[in-house]
Amino acid sequence: TFYNFIMGFQNDNTPFGILAEHVSEDKAFPRLEERHQVIRAYVMSNYTDHQLIETTNRAISLYMANL
């Protein structure tokens, strides 16, 4: 899942690491979701930090390219 992918960046001092920290603390994050459209919609609806949203979009693109 995307959640498992992004958790691989925990403790990294990178934008993906920052995203992983936010996702791990977000109890409502769709952890079992595999459809990138649902993940993107969730982030757009629940996150207000523009940098975090952009990082999510980049992470989703990388995740999709590696499926």
Rank of each mutant, 00 (worst) to 15 (best):
59 A>S: 04
65 A>C: 11
15 P>G: 07
17 G>H: 04
18 I>F: 10
12 D>T: 14
3 Y>F: 13
23 V>I: 15
3 Y>Q: 00
6 I>F: 03
16 F>V: 02
34 E>N: 14
22 H>T: 10
15 P>C: 10
43 V>C: 06
13 N>Y: 06
59 A>G: 03
51 Q>W: 14
47 Y>T: 04
60 I>V: 06
16 F>S: 02
31 R>E: 03
48 T>P: 07
33 E>I: 04
52 L>W: 05
44 M>L: 12
46 N>K: 08
21 E>D: 12
31 R>G: 03
61 S>Q: 14
67 L>Y: 08
5 F>R: 00
55 T>W: 08
65 A>W: 10
63 Y>L: 07
5 F>V: 01
43 V>I: 09
64 M>P: 01
20 A>M: 04
25 E>C: 12
21 E>P: 03
49 D>Q: 07
38 V>P: 04
2 F>K: 01
63 Y>S: 02
34 E>M: 15
15 P>R: 08
38 V>D: 05
39 I>M: 01
26 D>P: 02
25 E>A: 15
21 E>I: 14
63 Y>A: 02
60 I>G: 00
38 V>I: 11
49 D>M: 06
36 H>R: 05
35 R>A: 08
36 H>F: 13
4 N>V: 08
15 P>K: 06
52 L>N: 02
42 Y>N: 02
65 A>P: 05
66 N>D: 10
33 E>S: 06
4 N>P: 01
1 T>Q: 03
7 M>L: 10
11 N>A: 07
3 Y>W: 07
32 L>N: 13
14 T>M: 03
26 D>F: 07
45 S>V: 07
11 N>Q: 08
53 I>C: 06
62 L>H: 06
67 L>P: 08
16 F>R: 01
58 R>M: 11
43 V>N: 00
21 E>A: 15
61 S>W: 12
49 D>V: 05
63 Y>E: 00
31 R>H: 07
34 E>R: 14
13 N>A: 10
66 N>K: 12
61 S>P: 05
66 N>T: 14
6 I>L: 14
54 E>C: 07
13 N>K: 11
10 Q>R: 15
36 H>T: 15
20 A>D: 10
6 I>H: 00
30 P>T: 02
58 R>G: 05
48 T>H: 11
38 V>L: 09
46 N>F: 08
14 T>V: 03
57 N>Q: 11
35 R>H: 09
53 I>S: 03
56 T>L: 14
17 G>M: 05
66 N>L: 15
6 I>P: 00
31 R>V: 07
10 Q>E: 08
32 L>S: 12
23 V>P: 11
33 E>D: 05
62 L>T: 05
10 Q>C: 14
67 L>F: 10
5 F>Q: 00
18 I>W: 12
13 N>G: 13
53 I>W: 09
11 N>K: 10
55 T>V: 10
64 M>A: 10
50 H>F: 11
58 R>Y: 09
46 N>P: 03
22 H>W: 13
22 H>D: 03
3 Y>G: 00
52 L>E: 01
49 D>L: 05
49 D>C: 07
30 P>E: 02
2 F>C: 04
40 R>S: 08
30 P>F: 14
20 A>I: 04
53 I>P: 01
10 Q>P: 04
15 P>M: 11
21 E>G: 12
9 F>H: 05
48 T>A: 10
60 I>Y: 05
44 M>E: 14
46 N>Q: 07
8 G>Y: 07
27 K>Y: 08
37 Q>H: 15
24 S>E: 08
18 I>Y: 09
62 L>S: 05
66 N>W: 15
47 Y>C: 07
44 M>C: 09
36 H>M: 14
53 I>L: 10
28 A>Y: 14
24 S>Q: 12
44 M>P: 00
4 N>S: 13
28 A>D: 13
56 T>G: 06
31 R>L: 06
2 F>S: 03
65 A>K: 12
20 A>Y: 06
8 G>K: 13
20 A>Q: 04
12 D>E: 12
47 Y>D: 01
51 Q>K: 13
67 L>G: 10
15 P>I: 07
1 T>G: 09
45 S>A: 14
1 T>Y: 06
30 P>L: 05
66 N>Q: 15
54 E>L: 10
34 E>K: 14
58 R>Q: 10
58 R>D: 06
39 I>G: 00
55 T>R: 04
12 D>N: 09
32 L>A: 11
10 Q>T: 09
53 I>K: 07
27 K>S: 11
46 N>H: 12
28 A>N: 15
2 F>A: 00
53 I>A: 05
51 Q>F: 15
50 H>T: 13
52 L>D: 04
67 L>R: 12
56 T>I: 14
41 A>L: 11
31 R>S: 05
1 T>R: 06
40 R>Q: 11
31 R>W: 06
65 A>Y: 10
53 I>F: 05
50 H>L: 13
14 T>W: 03
60 I>L: 15
7 M>K: 05
43 V>R: 00
46 N>T: 13
27 K>I: 12
18 I>S: 08
49 D>F: 08
62 L>R: 06
9 F>A: 01
45 S>N: 14
47 Y>N: 01
34 E>W: 15
50 H>A: 14
9 F>E: 00
2 F>H: 00
39 I>R: 00
19 L>M: 04
39 I>P: 00
38 V>N: 07
17 G>W: 05
41 A>Q: 13
42 Y>I: 03
51 Q>P: 04
1 T>M: 04
61 S>E: 14
19 L>A: 01
9 F>V: 02
12 D>V: 07
34 E>D: 13
10 Q>W: 13
66 N>R: 11
30 P>R: 02
36 H>E: 12
55 T>M: 08
65 A>E: 14
48 T>G: 08
27 K>N: 10
36 H>K: 04
38 V>F: 09
24 S>R: 15
34 E>T: 15
4 N>K: 10
41 A>S: 10
15 P>F: 07
36 H>C: 15
52 L>A: 02
5 F>S: 00
52 L>H: 03
13 N>Q: 10
33 E>R: 03
39 I>Y: 01
42 Y>W: 05
48 T>M: 08
50 H>V: 13
28 A>M: 13
5 F>I: 03
17 G>K: 06
37 Q>I: 08
38 V>G: 04
2 F>N: 00
52 L>F: 05
1 T>K: 05
52 L>P: 01
36 H>Y: 13
4 N>Q: 14
54 E>V: 09
1 T>F: 06
40 R>G: 05
53 I>Q: 08
6 I>E: 00
14 T>K: 03
51 Q>C: 12
27 K>W: 07
67 L>M: 12
57 N>D: 12
63 Y>H: 07
3 Y>A: 00
8 G>V: 08
20 A>E: 03
57 N>R: 09
52 L>S: 02
60 I>D: 00
21 E>W: 14
21 E>V: 13
15 P>E: 14
40 R>H: 10
66 N>H: 15
6 I>D: 00
17 G>L: 05
50 H>P: 15
65 A>G: 09
11 N>D: 09
43 V>F: 07
65 A>T: 09
32 L>F: 13
14 T>C: 06
23 V>E: 01
15 P>S: 10
16 F>K: 01
7 M>D: 00
48 T>V: 10
27 K>T: 11
42 Y>M: 04
24 S>D: 07
20 A>S: 05
5 F>Y: 07
